[in-house]
Simulated scan of single mutants.
Amino acid sequence: MLLGTFVPKLDEKGRIILPAKFRDDFSSGVVMARGQEHAIYVYSQREFEDLVERMQKQAPSLGKKGRDYLRLFLSGATQEIPDKQHRVTIPAVLREYAGLDRDLTVIGAGSRAEIWDTAAWNEYYANAESGFADADEEVISGLF
């Protein structure tokens, strides 16, 4: 399970060093894709394959919206293998999508990591945190 918040830097070649706590999960490769709120979602190869299989089973029943989502999601996805320094390159199309600059925030989101531009993450966090205390009753009722 991927947990925590990390603040790596994007180097001049568009690479990021994977957080040490995520390296075992991502040692055999990662798949990066467009995520919601202009984040980049990062999955292990296995997790991504399982996700796509589930999505493809549901897409026909979701109609055009499901097909559109699947097309957009997969068309921006890319596979990367970490180098010996545990770096992966974030392709230009994904860096542009997420508005990435040098300062990044990487969060663990359970089955995936998310890469955010730090300013965008801080803004998102500030907006979402204000409703966090009340969300358990609406979103995850009875869990706590």
Rank of each mutant, 00 (worst) to 15 (best):
83 D>V: 09
107 I>M: 01
4 G>C: 00
7 V>A: 09
54 R>Y: 07
59 A>K: 09
8 P>E: 07
59 A>H: 10
91 P>S: 08
42 V>Q: 00
93 V>Y: 10
37 E>S: 11
10 L>W: 00
24 D>I: 06
67 R>W: 05
7 V>L: 03
62 L>K: 15
81 I>D: 11
65 K>L: 03
122 N>K: 10
40 I>S: 06
113 A>G: 03
89 T>S: 09
25 D>K: 15
108 G>R: 05
107 I>V: 10
20 A>Q: 11
107 I>S: 00
40 I>C: 00
62 L>H: 15
126 A>M: 10
68 D>Q: 14
129 E>K: 15
15 R>H: 08
119 A>T: 14
6 F>G: 02
121 W>Y: 15
31 V>F: 02
103 D>E: 15
40 I>H: 04
83 D>I: 08
8 P>T: 09
73 F>T: 05
50 D>P: 03
111 S>Y: 12
25 D>I: 14
121 W>F: 15
56 Q>E: 10
73 F>G: 05
38 H>V: 09
128 A>D: 00
73 F>H: 12
95 R>L: 13
23 R>G: 03
114 E>S: 05
105 T>G: 02
61 S>Q: 14
82 P>F: 13
53 E>F: 12
12 E>H: 13
94 L>N: 06
41 Y>P: 00
12 E>W: 08
106 V>S: 07
39 A>N: 14
139 V>F: 13
36 Q>W: 10
71 R>F: 06
110 G>T: 10
98 A>I: 08
63 G>C: 08
116 W>L: 05
111 S>F: 09
100 L>A: 02
77 A>E: 04
26 F>V: 05
133 A>R: 12
133 A>V: 08
116 W>C: 01
87 R>S: 07
61 S>L: 13
112 R>C: 07
33 A>D: 01
127 N>F: 06
113 A>Y: 03
56 Q>D: 08
36 Q>M: 15
5 T>N: 03
117 D>R: 01
38 H>D: 10
34 R>Q: 05
87 R>C: 07
125 Y>D: 08
35 G>D: 02
56 Q>C: 07
82 P>M: 11
20 A>T: 14
23 R>V: 01
101 D>R: 02
83 D>F: 03
144 F>S: 07
134 D>I: 01
43 Y>Q: 04
117 D>K: 02
104 L>D: 00
83 D>R: 07
43 Y>M: 09
89 T>G: 01
87 R>A: 14
63 G>K: 14
45 Q>T: 07
76 G>S: 11
54 R>Q: 11
113 A>I: 06
82 P>Q: 08
110 G>D: 06
85 Q>M: 02
120 A>V: 06
60 P>E: 15
80 E>A: 14
76 G>K: 06
20 A>E: 09
78 T>I: 02
95 R>Y: 11
90 I>M: 08
107 I>Y: 02
58 Q>G: 01
46 R>W: 06
126 A>Q: 09
59 A>E: 02
81 I>P: 00
78 T>Q: 12
113 A>E: 03
61 S>N: 13
28 S>H: 09
115 I>E: 13
14 G>S: 04
99 G>A: 05
96 E>N: 00
87 R>E: 11
